[in-house]
Write a protein that binds this DNA or RNA. Structure first.
Length: 426
RNA sequence: GCGGCCUUGGUGUAGAGGCAACACAGCAGAUUGUGGUUCUGUUAUCAGGGGUUCAAUUCCCCUAGGCCGCCCCA
């Protein structure tokens, strides 16, 4: 094969489209029920936009970005996530107004240079929301609830919601210090990567699966115990509202998200049906990002759903909806005169809003019938020399195998009548 | 970036150091104008490159890709 898709990218083929469409349709529907409006931002942005928001020390920025210089010597990066671009766009277009809630949703491809694995691609798709303008914990719960509603709507079970709080500017530094101190005292027992993390990002040690680190992690101070008053009550109220909304969740003290902009609430939905890459949704609050990007001080919260993984779960779940197709007419022709008539008729059928197809390979009548059968045509209109001479055509119902003659003058009407109704004789 | 397993026709599989087998799909034909059954025929230099050998698709090495794990995350 001369060319193949690039590593970590794949073609999403027609067979899988019903599942994708179903997912997209349901996301859109729920987002709009919650009064979100769609926004589409560019696939690439300045590298700095991501470096600043996601964090220089994060894995995403330090090793996973598709970054290149354009012909104007600008450093460009293919978006690894959508929150930063959406925040940028919201500020740039004055979508965020004082004392007003702005709700945006998006859907599209993201890019991260990682080693491909099941459920992990270099070009992958996310759909998510961002809300600006409220620090109400009830909103946190609503946002989490929305993501859960989508899963419900899609009929997914075996999912669990994990939540945590990562504190804010005032309490996180203190916690980080304590954590650093704690791990430093055990540094010789930690794995190599965790030793590096001690300096770069001690928070992430909490996520380490290395057995030698695990036992220290068990006893590590938890951020929840270090939250400032504001963050603490915020977290408690989120829990309160989650209970009001009747959402099942697990508090995961070690849920650390890999993006630096998160404050207070973070959450994740994981599926028991996937492999190691089991997070299907992740998000959280980011109250400082808007002001850091030069907007007015505006709290915000959002999440992203990993669509590729959702599709996997949906396929496993067997809920792929077969997409509705039109009742299809196949026009079989024999001879040049018939072909001309067929081509004209084909156009008119389609102009009338009905699906139709005919042969362009020069197949025999038998093969045309086979083809009609293969593409599941409901009717076949047979136009042959004999029919044309007598001013008639043969119309065959492929399901009942009944057929009858129709006058060429009225063939369009006759066909339409049959394509509309199910009870016709042939 | 690291480790393990893997890569045979359109698809799914078999195979052995020396004619690459099977199923399904596809195409053609079995009434030179009619489908879904049946029958017949037909469809691959075994991912790419290099090496060992009289001989390799089968053994070895490299590369690419896939899967799984680490890492990270959606």
């Amino acid at each position: 094969m001369k060319y193949t898709s690039q590593r970590g990218t794949r073609d999403i083929l027609p067979v899988d489209m019903p599942v994708w469409h179903n997912l997209e349709k349901n996301c859109r529907k729920l987002f709009e029920l919650y009064n979100y409006f769609e926004i589409r931002t560019p696939i690439f942005e300045s590298t700095e936009l991501f470096a600043r928001s996601i964090g220089e020390s994060s894995d995403i920025v330090s090793k996973e970005m598709y970054t290149f210089k354009d012909k104007g010597d600008r450093s460009i990066t293919l978006r690894p996530e959508a929150t930063a671009p959406v925040v940028r766009a919201a500020i740039q277009n004055n979508l965020i107004e004082k004392d007003k809630i702005t709700k945006l949703y998006y859907m599209g491809p993201m890019f991260r240079y990682e080693r491909p694995q099941a459920g992990r691609y270099r070009q992958f798709y996310q759909s998510g929301v961002e809300v600006f303008g409220s620090k109400d914990p009830a909103l946190d719960a609503e946002v989490i609830s929305l993501s859960v509603q989508i899963m419900d709507k899609l009929g997914l079970s075996d999912l669990s919601v994990k939540i945590n709080s990562v504190g804010c500017k005032s309490c996180r530094p203190k916690y980080m210090e304590t954590l650093k101190e704690y791990f430093k005292s055990n540094a010789k027992n930690l794995c190599e990567t965790c030793n590096n993390r001690l300096e770069t990002n001690p928070l992430r040690i909490l996520d380490c699966k290395d057995p030698s680190c695990q036992k220290h992690i068990e006893n590590a101070p938890a951020i929840i115990d270090f939250l400032c008053e504001e963050c603490k009550t915020h977290f408690e109220k989120v829990i309160y509202w989650l209970n009001v909304l009747n959402i099942k969740y697990e508090i995961n003290k070690r849920l650390v998200r890999g993006l630096d902009y998160y404050t207070k609430t973070t959450f994740e939905i994981v599926s028991g049906k996937l492999g190691a890459q089991n997070a299907v949704c992740g998000g959280g609050r980011y109250d400082n990002l808007v002001v850091e990007f030069g907007g007015n001080d505006t709290p915000a919260i959002g999440f992203a759903i990993g669509m590729d993984r959702m599709v996997e779960v949906l396929k496993e779940h067997g809920t792929q909806s077969t997409e509705h197709r039109f009742r299809l007419l196949y026009i079989a022709t024999l001879g040049d005169a018939a072909k001309k008539l067929g081509v004209e008729l084909l156009l008119n059928i389609r102009k009338s809003g009905y699906a139709a197809e005919m042969d362009y390979i020069g197949k025999s009548l038998k093969s045309q019938m086979k083809e009609a059968d293969r593409i599941k045509a409901k009717y076949v209109l047979i136009l042959g020399e004999d029919e044309i001479k007598s001013g008639k055509a043969m119309l065959r119902n492929m399901e009942t195998a009944e057929q009858g003659e129709v006058l060429l003058d009225k063939v369009l009407e006759e066909i339409i009548v049959r394509l509309q109704s199910k009870g016709s004789k042939f």
